[in-house]
């Protein structure tokens, strides 16, 4: 995963939260958004506001409704894929680095 041969890049240390995001570049990350949205996608770019560009994104939107007859709570999740997505930082709740268990 460490693909920074570029000399301009300082030693890979995690001193601040965004360093962890930097280490996730070109990896698939999980992003939790406001309004019950989740994104999974490859991180291509970010900035200090956590504006991001993600590739091959899967967006999951969760809505909860109550069935009026049975009072059953119904969680509906709708998924869709977006090839390339710019995400505005102010909607981001958390960013999770790639899971190491996979592959």
């Amino acid at each position: 995963m460490a693909d920074d041969q570029d000399q301009a890049i300082p030693v890979q240390t995690v001193e601040e939260p965004l360093d962890l995001v930097r280490l996730s570049l070109d990896e698939r990350i999980y992003v939790k958004m406001r309004t019950d949205r989740e994104l999974r996608g490859r991180l291509h770019a970010y900035d200090q506001h956590l504006n991001m560009i993600l590739g091959d994104v899967e967006e999951t939107v969760t809505t909860s409704e109550i069935d009026e007859e049975t009072y059953e709570e119904i969680f509906k999740t709708t998924k869709r894929t977006i090839p390339m997505l710019f995400v505005r930082g102010d909607g981001v709740i958390l960013v999770s680095p790639p899971m190491r268990t996979a592959t």
Binding site: M33, I53, G55, I82, P83, M84, L85, F86, V87, G91
Partner: peptide, 8 residues
Amino acid sequence: VRYVQLPA
């Protein structure tokens, strides 16, 4: 703006 979908 929440998202901008870009041409990949």
